[in-house]
């Protein structure tokens, strides 16, 4: 059980696929104009990631090494088509908002990377857990970006007006330049935090038993920090 929890923490924080491994940039930049879209995209990718990891792990002894990438792509695209059809049937507004980025989950580097690096070498249950934790890490990163961009760009969250009416909407955050700038500032904040925690670890290398205590702190600091940084950037631009 402990092992799965550690996997979950790795996926969401230490090895976050978007903010630390820097994979899957296209959907990260394109679908984070609002928190709702970001969450929807993250969940769709998570569903595909879990299914494809389980399936590839089941078939890992049968797929020949030479054609493994092609086999993975076929498996992933099958699940993506299923998710696409389900979303068109039950979540039509979200399906329309995300547009081509749902079929483009097929070529999301995170999914192929996890298939190649994890699911092809591990048993089914750890692979499913890996899919879940990496998917949640991706969703988490998208939600940070979605929150910052929706808040600064249209002054609302999940469609409800949060900031006072006197706040001038900075539309640039909903446009492509804002996507690049926000992601840049968020990753800078993550690098800063990682540098700080590494230094702390180095200083305390004599007593290496404080990982559990330090694990939860960065999350809260992360969100606040990145929002603050991006806010500063917004003001500069305005």
């Amino acid at each position: 059980m402990n092992r799965y929890l550690r996997q979950l923490k790795e996926g969401i924080l230490d090895q976050n696929p978007t903010l630390v491994q820097l994979l899957g940039m296209c959907p990260t930049l394109a679908t984070t104009t609002s928190l709702e879209n970001a969450f929807g995209m993250g969940m769709a990718a998570t569903a595909v990631l879990i299914c494809s990891n389980v399936f590839i792990s089941l078939l890992r002894k049968f797929i020949p090494r030479q054609v493994r990438i092609a086999a993975y792509i076929v498996i992933v695209s099958g699940f993506v088509t299923a998710v696409e059809l389900l979303m068109r049937a039950y979540l039509y507004p979200l399906y329309q908002a995300l547009g081509l980025f749902i079929p483009l989950i097929v070529v999301n580097c995170i999914i192929l990377a996890r298939a190649e690096a994890f699911a092809s070498k591990n048993k089914v249950l750890p692979s499913a857990m890996d899919g879940l934790s990496m998917g949640l890490g991706f969703t988490f990163a998208l939600c940070i970006l979605g929150t910052v961009r929706e808040l600064l760009g249209s002054g609302s969250l999940l469609g409800y007006r949060v900031l006072p009416e006197s706040y001038p909407d900075m539309v640039v955050f909903l446009l492509p330049p804002g996507a690049f700038l926000t992601l840049g500032f968020v990753i800078a904040a993550v690098q800063k935090l990682r540098g700080m925690s590494e230094e702390r670890r180095r200083r305390r290398s004599a007593a290496p038993a404080d990982t559990a205590a330090g694990a939860t702190a960065p999350v809260a600091a992360d969100g606040a920090h990145s929002a603050g940084e991006a806010d500063g950037a917004g003001r500069k631009e305005d």
Partner: peptide, 10 residues
């Protein structure tokens, strides 16, 4: 903190 990827994105 901005070295590498962040400054590239900006």
């Amino acid at each position: 903190a901005f070295r590498g990827f962040p400054i590239t994105l900006i």
